[in-house]
Design a protein around this nucleic acid. Structure first.
Lengths: 129, 129
DNA sequence: TATCTGTATTACTAATTATAATACAGATAA
DNA sequence: TTATCTGTATTATAATTAGTAATACAGATA
């Protein structure tokens, strides 16, 4: 899992990190049960503070993407119970993005093509799923 | 265009307003060239401050969804020049949402179904497009 | 002149972001 | 036992941004 952060952009570091990990899980390049680096290790690798990594991990835990064991560290474990807002909140955001694309001139077919292209790009990064 | 804001939620009022208008444009229930209420009028209707409405309008303008004429007020006018970040930024967000859905257990077919359902829901709100 | 536009200014509070230094609890391995 | 890993709680600090609001101004219009 290669993660690079944009230190100059406006997106918070902990969010960039959270998103990178969600992308990795979604593309199966991080698999269920797989362990994540320790907060200190990852912080050192990325050149950021350990508490910033901890913030990302805690967020991922609260959103049901990982579990954290004080002994072994964090590992991928997607659970539905931890995040009951799915799929309602997700659908809202999804609909909003579709609306944005359509408003900007993408027709139904173009939207569908775009969707499929993005899906393919995402899935070919990971394993055979 | 019926807009209702959640005054107690954590989502900022100006963002809720911006999103509601983008949804309306995307579903064609607000059409190209159609005028929006004045900032004061809308602020009064919604029971919020006029500058909050202005912030939403300014954001919509900066993102290329509306044009603002000091004389006539704001009207829907989607332009590509005003927002050169499309489609790159949009694709990133879209991909992230797909990844979230997939990570939470939606397979490729389920994702596609979900996509089509959301599309249909969105488009049937507006006109015949 | 009265009344609409949007908007610039200013203000104020609250929250966010990131970092840092410690310290602690628990587990593990030498 | 000791050293060394985990995560995490605590506290602090600093800079920045967010969010909302009150007010006044400029320009256009009727």
């Amino acid at each position: 899992m290669l993660i690079s952060l944009d230190m100059t952009g406006e997106e918070p570091l902990y969010l960039q990190l959270r998103n990178a990990i969600v992308l990795a899980i979604g593309s199966k390049s991080l698999q269920e049960g797989e362990g994540l680096p320790s907060v200190r290790q990852l912080a050192e690798d990325l050149g950021i503070n350990a508490m910033t990594v901890n913030k990302a991990y805690t967020l991922l835990k609260d959103q049901g993407f990982i579990e954290i064991d004080r002994r072994q560290g964090a590992k991928v474990m997607v659970t539905r119970e931890a995040y009951p807002h799915f799929p309602e909140r997700w659908q809202e955001q999804f609909t909003l993005l579709i609306a944005e694309g359509h408003a900007r001139g993408l027709g139904r077919e173009e939207l569908l093509e775009m969707y499929e292209t993005l899906c393919n790009n995402l899935f070919e990064k990971g394993g055979t799923d």
